[in-house]
Structure formats: C-alpha cells, structure tokens
Design a protein around this nucleic acid. Structure first.
Lengths: 332, 332
DNA sequence: CTGAAAGCGCTAACAA
DNA sequence: TTGTTAGCGCTTTCAG
C-alpha cells in the first residue's frame, strides 16, 4: 500500500492535521514544520488519496460527459474542448456513450451520481423530457451542450440551428438555385436537428419559393441516409441544389450524385452542416455550416465548473456563433 | 444530502451491516428482513455511495484511458470498443488526452493513481521508456493498446505493423507497380508506425526492387504531411504508386496528386493505413490496411479487467489480425 | 501555530 | 441470521 497521510505525519514528527494543512495550503503553517512535512512527503513519495478526500469533502473533481457516441464524427472534438478546460481546473472526465438510448442514459446518470461526480455535461441531439426530469431530481449541476430544453430550465451552449439553416439555404438561393432539396431530420420535436428543416422552410418561403415535398427526404443524418435520400430525391426530376442536415448526409448525397453522373458543384450544389473534419478533406471539399464543436465543449465545461463552484455565470443559455464556410461543393 | 446507509438502517429497523449485506448480496439474509431493507431503500430512494465503498474496498470500478487525442480520427473507435465492454462489467472510463506530451502523461498517470483507478489502458504510438518505468512503479494494472514495449513487459494488444506494411506493399508490387514511394514515419525507434517503413523496405527487397531514397518522405501522419510529402516526392520524377503511413497521409497525397492533374488510381496507386472512417467515404475510396480499432479497444479492456480481477489471461500480447481492404485508390 | 478527535459512507471481521 | 465496531485516508472543527 502506498504511503498515507499517517506515514507522512510520523515521518515528519507532526500530526496528520498539520500534514493536511500543508497539503491544502491552509493557514500559515510554520515554515520550519512545513519544510519537514514537505521533506517527508518527498521521501515517502507520498500522494494524497483523492477518494478519501472526496468522501470527506463531497467533491470528486470529476465530471461526467454523456454523449451519444464518441465514435461518431461530431462529438470527439466537443469532448476534447471540454477536456482541455477541465484539465486547467483539475477536473477529470468520465465518459459515457449512450447511443441516445434512454435506458443507458438513466443508468449512467445513476452511476454518475453514485460516483459523486461534481457535474454533468449532457449532450443529446434528442432531449427526452423524462431524462430532464430525472436529472433535475438528481440535483447535480448540469449543462446541456448542442441542445436546449424548451423551457430553458437548464444552462446550455448551442448554436441557433434554425437561423443557421436559414442562412445556408438563403445562400443557396442567392447562388441562383431554385429547386433545393432537403435531406435530414424533420418534425421530431425533441430533436434539435429538426430545426434545420424549419430554417430551410422559412428561407424558401421568404424567397417566394414553393416547398416541394417530393424533394424533401426525412431521414437520419448518416452517410447512408444521405445516399439513400439523394437517390430517392433524384427520381423527382432535376434539382439545383441540396441542403443536407449533416456533413455525413452531404457526403452520402454527393456519392450518390457521382454515381448518377451528376457533378458537384457544376450540376448541383450540395450544402452540408456541422463542418466535421471530413468536410475539409472530402472531394469536393464541403461548403457547410460550421458549428464550433471545440468551443461548445470548452465553454460548456467552463460554465459547468463555475456552476459547481457557485460562481455566477454571465449567461445561462449560450448561443455560439456559427459560420458558413464556402468551399467547393457549391458554386460561388 | 442524499440518504445514506444509516438512514436506510433506521428506516428498516436493522443495523447498517444488514443493509450492507443485502446491498452486496452477501450470505443468506433472512427474506423478511431483506424485504424490509429493500422497502426502505425504495422508500428513501437510496443509492450507495460508491466513493465511500471505494475507500473501503480500495476499488473504484473505474479505469483510466490515456490516449493521444480523442479528436483525431483513430482513437474514438478504440475508446468506444473499450467503453462497451467496460459497461458490461460495470466499469467506467476516465478519459485523458495527452497529445503525446510526456509531461501530460506523467501528470495524468499521477492523478489516475490518486483517484485510485483500478487499471489503465494506455495508448501511444510512441512509447517512451521513461513512462513505462513510471507506470511500473505506479503498480497499477495496465495494458498497452496499439503498441508493444520492446521487452514485452506489459500486456498489450496491437497488430503486426511490419507485416501489414509488407503485405500492403507486396500487393502494390503484384499490381504491377515498381516505383513505389513511402510517405510516413521512419527511423523513430519508439514509434510503432515506423515499423511500416520496415515492412515497406522488406517488401521492396524481397521483390528485387531497389529502394530509392528520393521517393521516401519521412514525416508525420497527418493530411498536410501527406500533401507536402507528395508534392516533394513528385519532383523526383514519375511514380507508380505511393504507400502511406496513414489514411490521413493518403488523403493528403491524393489531394496533392489531384492538384497536379495526376489521377488516382489511373495514373498512380495510393495505399493508406488504418482504415479510419474517412477511408470508406473519401473519393476515391481508399484501399488501405484495416486495423481493428474497435476490437483493440474491447479486447484491451477485457484483458485489463481480467488482470484487475486476478484472472488468468490467455495471452499476454495479443496480435490482432489486420486486413487489406481493396477499394478504389489502387488499380485492381 | 499545532494537535486531538470526530466523521464522510461504507465493508468486513468478530461476536452474539 | 444479525449487530457492533474498527477502520479505509482524509478534512476540519475545537482546544490548547
């Protein structure tokens, strides 16, 4: 067993209270004794046991991150952003993959409480009211990333998905496109990405373009969804452009178009969403709406830590700026 | 404060020991009393405090994962594989991003010990002897993923990088290619990816092809490394194929070739390594060596958990199978 | 400035 | 079958 505070106390010839004091930089411990303690610590290679400390202080300096799937393309960078600021404040991260599965989420939430995490960063494109209720009961500080609850009960950091989609589609229209397809989520009230459809609709409306349901494909957000959706949409005749609910979708869509001998962007413009890593590396490079993933993670974590430490937060619901990044999948 | 074991004991009219027994399914607690306890637990919504338990049992049911960077394309799936099996055995994961920075690694290792993790999954393409030494001193069960220490002191799970590279280059040669460039790491003894260069060399040799240093580019493994390397290598005249140390490299290389009006695979074959997600989605889809990322994570975690629980492991150094996946970036 | 002692919530002898 | 009790390693009053 590693050395404990007792061993250090014995070695230094002081009480454990004194050792604890130097450990925590409390009061003005006499320089002499402090030195003795430090020497003992050094000699014994002592390191405090944080579990014991946590039991006493009721703080673990660890926060849970609940995410749908780390192996998707969207979340790793958020996690990274969060970890980087956690690291600054000496917090650690416990990672929980839920696959958006309610049961898993509840389970993890329970475990996180049992393990006494100080706070939770909760990511879910699809917020179930039940979960929110459950979290509230848990009484653990939490901030939502990527999404916001309708009642704005919880602190959050996200972007304006509706506005971003609106801007993106407006861009497409300004580019001379009229017949613009939509491939992505819609009409799922719990799912934030459905807001992109709302933005799409509004852009069309405000520009006097009639929505044609035959070129709207309601789907998931993966590559194969984009692929399938595109194939389906093509059947409804010629197109000027496609607005996709995600970059993965856009990639799938472009692959489908390519198979059909349709060129991007020469024949049709394709717009993605999120600006995941592939977007800048795919051929053609995706024109897309950039979500500040890293920043969402880092400001989310910063906010959470403030809440944990009962500091005031400047804003409860951060809406981070998005950016339309023009690359190669749309004509300029 | 949430209910503690005391509250439950009081509510059920038994001792805390009894409560603890039903909690841990120990002995044959009388059915009657068990029922009473269970009711009390239910009524008070009691959940055990795992931190307290950990202090007593010296086990936390959490393991640390030390990885270079979760936001790179390689690690998320490993983490996912690890998490999935951790979940089965009721372990949680503490995530640590090190950027391959020695100081950060040491720091995290320390914290992990202070937080009493039961084990560590350590990933690093570049194993520093110092770190290994440090870990040994820590005395925490650890398994290496993606890499192996030369002395085979630590349990590990990886693939045969040299053999895989050999196979890949041999494939290129069988395909009729003679002038085959290499873009990737070489001569870094600590870095496992350097072994790909060794395999490259051997394949050339065994097929009677002279190694031409002017088409070997020693570099990092990122997209821009591949891009730069390709540009450089092209200057040395015509090429039949390029073997890249990573898929990112290959993507960068292909982008460079495309800019020069050189077609892949019509004019030159490009082979990647790893089979990250982009490989199957990029245009052209990458022919590459597939590392079983998810499996490396899951068998690594399974092995670690066995070690933690003092069970025998069948094999100390797992060498998982790789696979050459033929797609579009090489002629067939 | 320092020490004694209580206690965080739990497990595990040991007794009964 | 159940209860009592001694810690796990630390922080934090409260005295001195």
């Amino acid at each position: 067993m590693a050395a404990s505070i007792k061993d250090v106390a014995r070695e230094a010839g002081v009480s454990i209270a004194t050792v604890s004091r130097v450990l925590n930089n409390i009061n003005v411990v006499n320089e002499e004794t402090k030195k003795k303690v430090l020497e003992a610590i050094d000699k014994l290679q002592y390191r405090p046991n944080i579990v014991a400390r946590s039991l006493k202080t009721q703080k673990t300096s660890t926060v849970g991150m609940i995410i749908p799937d780390i192996s998707s393309q969207f979340y790793p960078e958020i996690v990274r952003g969060a970890e980087d600021v956690a690291n600054i404040y000496d917090y650690n991260i416990m990672l929980c993959n839920t696959d958006l599965d309610l049961e898993k989420e509840v389970n993890y939430l329970r475990v996180l409480r049992e393990k006494m995490v100080d706070g939770i960063l909760y990511m879910s494109s699809s917020l179930q009211p039940k979960i929110l209720e459950f979290i509230k009961e848990l009484g653990i500080p939490m901030v939502l990333i990527e999404n916001t609850d309708k009642e704005k009960n919880f602190p959050s950091v996200s972007i304006d998905n509706e506005g971003a989609a609106y801007d993106a589609v407006t861009y497409l229209i300004k580019n001379g496109n009229k017949r613009i397809a939509y491939i992505g989520k819609k009409d799922d009230d719990n799912n934030i990405t459905s807001m992109r459809y709302v933005g799409y609709k509004r852009a069309l409306e405000e520009n006097g373009i009639n929505l044609d349901a035959s070129i709207v494909y309601s789907s998931g957000l993966k590559v194969e969804d984009g692929y399938k959706g595109m194939l389906r949409v093509i059947e409804s005749g010629n197109l000027d452009a496609v607005f996709c609910g995600s970059d993965e979708c856009a990639i799938g869509a472009i692959n489908a178009l390519r198979e059909k001998g349709i060129k991007v962007p020469e024949d049709v413009d394709v717009m993605g969403f999120n600006d995941i890593y592939e977007a800048s590396v795919f051929y053609p490079k995706l024109t897309t709406v950039s979500q500040p993933m890293y920043d969402m993670g880092s400001v989310g974590m910063r906010m959470l830590i403030k809440i944990i430490n009962k500091q005031k937060i400047e804003e409860k619901n951060y809406v981070l700026p998005y950016q339309l990044v023009e690359r190669e999948s749309c004509k300029k």
